[in-house]
Design a protein around this nucleic acid. Structure first.
Length: 99
DNA sequence: CTCTTGACGCCGG
DNA sequence: TCCGGCGCCAAGA
């Protein structure tokens, strides 16, 4: 199977600096292939091997899988959170990727 | 080959 | 703000 895509996704996620995040769509855009759903699939399969908590939805909100301790990581990394605390402040936490 | 489903995203109402 | 619809791509039944 094509683990190439999986590797590229996981590699990018590993490159996300602590305290920063990327959205599923952003990952797809940076890799310039697949889409948000493909990224989500990869994370669902092998996301456990990387910093899965650094990948959130486009609006900064979290998903079911993020509830298992992601907030602990955010607090530890000092990730900017929205007032409610159940979503990331995208305007500040979104990683400005550049190659 | 078709239909459903999903760690998604954007637009309306 | 909350909800629903449609588009998106790939995998499984």
């Amino acid at each position: 199977m094509d683990d190439g895509y999986t590797d590229r996704v996981l590699d990018l996620v590993e490159r996300i600096p602590p305290g920063r995040v990327l959205s599923y769509g952003a990952v797809a855009e940076i890799l310039d292939e697949g889409g948000p759903r493909q990224v989500g699939r990869v994370m669902a399969m092998d996301g456990g091997a990387v910093a899965w908590w650094r990948v959130v939805r486009a609006d900064g909100s979290l998903t079911a899988a993020h509830g298992m301790g992601a907030q602990e990581h955010y607090a530890e990394e000092g990730t900017p959170m929205r007032a409610n605390g159940h979503a990331v402040d995208m305007s500040r936490a979104l990683w400005q990727y550049r190659d």
